[in-house]
Structures are given as C-alpha cells and as structure tokens.
C-alpha cells in the first residue's frame, strides 16, 4: 500500500451540507476531481483530517443560461465544460483554456472550481517530503525561508490555473457560499498576490459556481507556454478580450497567469480604448506588462524567459484577435 495519512471523507449532497461539514473542521479540504489535492496529500504538503467531497453536489454540477448570463457549477468537469454546446458556441475562450489544462485523462475529472482554486506552485514546494526536508522546507510549508528570494519574507509560488485568466477577461464572477451566507464577487477580487495564501476566501467559504455575462460582441482567446505541450502547467498564459467598433477599440481586457501568485487583470488597458487596434496599440499594450508581473525562479525555466514569452504571446494573441474581429 502507498502511504496515505489518516483522514475521513464526507460526501454532502447539498451546498448547505458541505458548508456545515466544514464548519465542524475549519481545516477540512474540498475534493472534487482530486488532481491537485491528492498529489499534494501524497507529497505530505497537505494533511487534512477531513475531506469534503463536493464532486456530486447537484447545485454545483450543471451549466445553466439565463438572460444571456451563463452559470457554470464549480464541480463541472473540464471535459464537460469543453463539450458543452453553449460554451462551445459562445465562450470559445473557455474551451481553449480548458483544453490546455493538463492532459485528456485529467480533464475528465478535474473541475472548474478546482482549477480556479488551484494551489500555488513552486519548484521548492511541489516536491516529495524527503526532497523538501533535505532543503530545510520553505515559507509555504513548514519552513522559514523562501529559496526563490532568500532575503524576502514573501512567498513567490506561482498561480498556475489556466481558466482564471479566461474567466477574468469574460468579466466573470464567483458565487461563494460560507457559514455567514452567500456572496458574489468579481473573480479578480478572489485572489491576492501571496503564494502562501492566495485566495481571499474566509474560513469555511467555498466557490459554488462562476457566472459569465454574455460576450457575443467580444473576440476572446487564450494562449499558453509550457515545457511539455502534452501536459504541463503554464510557464505563463495570456487571455485577452477585444471589442471593436468601426475599427477602433471599444473594449480591451487582458489577464495573465503563471507570472505571479495570483492571476492578473492587466491594468491600464482602458487608455487604449478609442485607438485603432494596430501594431502601435499592441506595442503600447505590451509595454504595460513588465511593471505588473513578477515571475520568479519558481519553475525550472528562468524568469527572463517567462517575461519574454508573456510579451510575445500577448502580441501574437492580439494580432490574431484583431484579424478575427475584422473578418
């Protein structure tokens, strides 16, 4: 038998029961597809006494449309998201981003909520117990140093979800349920730039669904760089949404992943509204990136490469969307 710590698994049938189950044990972990949590348990970086399995909670399992807005349950799998007719027809950026997550077998069980709440990752963190022990652990778990930036007191583990930037450029919001009731918040507000604690969710709170407004007049896309295109997490990923009116930009949103401890909505894009979407505008957009991102040595690929690749991917994606919008 492989080593697994002791825990009990609860299987609530409703969101209410899931929230109640976590009220009894604030450190309880949520489980859906398990593609992030179970490897982390195996590596000893998470050791829950209670696991709350929300993969079968009916309210979190479907995709619904009302007045153009689409609500996607947090326990919808990536394969279901990719195959869903409404998503394929109207939110192709979500299909692009979800199709780039890990490999086909992972996507059969990995969920939308799981990808949005993905733990941050670092080459010094996602390692076996003996590897981390031999390196004196780190801030993110058990240790008192950041090996990536030893002079700082911050943790630079990178957020590596592919769906978050796509949902952010779609102006998505998350439905959150917790012991003090339910709330809806714009997706960027769910994150903070701290690798140790990157989710602004209160004790016992959980993501129940994502809401996306109609995006029919926008052209959106997602591109990603990774070491092995078959399976890896992003070294960096870029999502963009563009709206053109009479050849000029009427709206522009760009979001990045893999560069910080949170997915970033690029600031300053509103200054480009009104300008034609040409190479000059794209240059101005790309110039906004360097000061807002902070890739560190948290992957095997150097930060300088990730800076260059983000700029180049943004340029390529915007040219593609510009051509699409003019067609």
């Amino acid at each position: 038998m492989e080593f697994m710590p002791e825990f009990r698994v609860l299987r609530p049938a409703s969101v209410e029961d899931a929230v109640a189950a976590r009220r009894d044990d604030p450190d309880a972990c949520l489980l859906a597809g398990g593609t992030d949590l179970v490897p982390n348990i195996r590596r000893g970086i998470v050791a829950p006494r209670t696991i709350v399995d929300v993969s079968e909670v009916a309210e979190m399992r479907d995709i619904r449309e009302r007045d153009g807005e689409v609500r996607i349950g947090a326990s919808v799998t990536l394969a279901e998201l990719i195959e869903h007719p409404i998503i394929r027809q109207r939110f192709s950026v979500l299909v692009q981003a979800a199709s780039e997550v890990a490999a086909s077998s992972h996507r059969q069980v990995a969920t939308v909520g799981g990808n949005l709440c993905l733990d941050t990752r670092c080459v010094y963190y996602n390692q076996s117990e003996w590897w981390r022990r031999s390196n004196d652990y780190c801030f993110k778990h058990q240790g008192e140093i950041c090996h990536v930036a030893p002079k700082t007191v911050a943790c630079f583990a990178a957020y590596s979800g592919d769906l978050a930037p796509a949902f952010i450029v779609l102006d998505g919001a998350v439905e959150v349920a917790g012991p003090d009731g339910n709330r809806v918040m714009p997706l960027p507000e769910m994150y903070r730039d701290d690798g140790r604690d990157h989710l602004r969710l209160g004790p016992g709170e959980m993501v129940v669904a994502v809401r996306v407004p109609a995006a029919d007049s926008w052209h959106c896309g997602y591109v990603k760089a990774r070491v092995r295109s078959a399976i890896d997490f992003p070294l960096a990923g870029v999502a963009a949404a563009v709206k053109l009116q009479a050849g000029s930009l009427a709206g522009l949103r760009v979001a990045l992943t893999g560069t910080n401890a949170m997915p970033l909505l690029l600031q300053g894009t509103e200054d480009l509204v009104g300008a034609p979407l040409d190479d000059d505008a794209i240059d101005r957009l790309v110039a906004l990136i360097p000061k807002q991102i902070q890739p560190m040595t948290s992957t095997v690929t150097p930060p300088g490469y990730r800076r260059r690749v983000v700029a180049n991917m943004t340029r390529t994606l915007l040219r593609r969307l510009s051509a699409e919008a003019r067609r």
Partner: peptide, 21 residues
C-alpha cells in the same frame, strides 16, 4: 498523476487511479 500508467476506466472515462480515492 503525471504518467498515465495507472489509467483505468470509470463509467467509460479514463481516470488516473494513483490520484483517485
């Protein structure tokens, strides 16, 4: 969950049995 050697089918869909409870 990185190599696929442990893949089985669950309700006709591939699943990695080394990262599945």
């Amino acid at each position: 969950g990185e190599c696929g050697a442990c893949t089985v089918l669950v309700d006709d869909r591939p699943r990695l049995s080394c990262i599945t409870l």
